[in-house]
């Protein structure tokens, strides 16, 4: 909590000085460390019934960076992702302890409306899931449910451009989103997620159902998205994590966050032997 607040202050304090410009210039250069935290977990424990899926996780996720969550299957990566936009609320037996801070507030506070929260956090799923509606209606969905009436077409176009899909579909905006190829569908889902202009985008293995060419397009896109959004991506593809992320968190079985550092550090010189074993393929 305090962490986020002080950082907010730093930024607003310096907003009219020259240094800010530098800081902002630096922020676009993603190799430099981000100065602000977008999402933070504090002593987070998640249970499904009696089974623990996330064990005492504490981490700060930087703003406008790509943070990758890697780890073997079943180690709780998706569960962690879903705690951030409270999609776990949909699972009856799921119980969350600890805090997840976003926008200077614990999203599990009783006065937080999960529906309102999700309007600020976009999500892209493993299997592309465009709605059985036209491409236009898919992208405009978030705008529609939030009651935006003006400039819908312009925002649809902008979001499709943002998802690097516009050129391919501009002549068929009224045809069904389900008629697109898998990779295009996934980019449509990304366009849908960014249309209401969220702050954070969560991606749960967004390329694992796609062929390599489509996957690499999405990877390029993720790189661009980090200019404007905080991207948190779950992947089981280590090369992918190494290629696209700035920070990497390694979860291991039992829902433990074993190591969390700059991506380069994790892949070149991890502190933990278990992480090194996992990355080099000795287990997992």
């Amino acid at each position: 909590m305090s962490n986020t607040e002080t950082e907010t202050k730093t930024e607003s304090d310096g907003s009219d000085s020259l240094i800010t410009t530098d800081v902002q210039a630096e922020q676009n250069d993603r190799s430099a460390p981000s100065t602000r935290t977008a999402v933070a977990a504090r002593n987070l424990n998640v249970y499904y019934g009696d089974e623990q899926a996330i064990k005492d996780v504490t981490m700060d996720i930087p703003e406008k960076r790509v943070t990758a969550l890697i780890g073997p299957s079943g180690c709780g990566k998706s569960t962690f992702l879903r705690t951030i936009n409270r999609m776990n609320d949909m699972i009856d037996i799921c119980r969350v302890e600890g805090d997840v801070e976003f926008g200077g507030k614990n999203v599990y506070d009783p006065d937080v409306d999960p529906v309102a929260l999700r309007r600020k956090i976009g999500m892209v799923f493993q299997k592309p899931n465009p709605f059985p509606k036209s491409i236009r209606d898919n992208v405009a969905y978030g705008l529609k449910i939030q009651g935006f009436d003006s400039d819908v077409d312009a925002r649809v176009e902008e979001s499709l451009k943002g998802a690097a899909l516009y050129e391919e579909v501009k002549d068929q905006l009224d045809s069904s989103g389900l008629e697109l190829s898998g990779g295009q569908q996934q980019r449509l889902c990304i366009a849908r997620a960014i249309a209401p202009d969220p702050e954070v985008i969560l991606m749960d293995e967004p390329t694992s159902a796609l062929d390599p060419v489509a996957a690499s397009k999405i990877e390029d896109l993720i790189d661009d998205l980090a200019e404007e959004y905080t991207v948190i991506i779950v992947t089981h593809n280590m090369q992918q994590a190494a290629r696209i992320s700035d920070r990497t968190a390694v979860f291991l079985t039992g829902g433990e966050l074993v190591e969390y550092d700059d991506t380069a550090k994790i892949f070149e010189d991890p502190e933990e032997q278990r992480v090194e074993d996992y990355i080099t393929g000795k287990f997992g």
């Binding site: 999700r118 709605f131 059985p132 969905y141 449910i145």
Partner: peptide, 24 residues
């Protein structure tokens, strides 16, 4: 997956039902 997609966009239960589930 349609429901989850709609929920994740910040749709209320009713909006998901009306916009995604019922038309389908």
């Amino acid at each position: 997956e349609f429901r989850r997609g709609s929920d994740a966009m910040g749709a209320t239960r009713w909006q998901t039902t009306k916009n995604v589930v019922l038309p389908e």
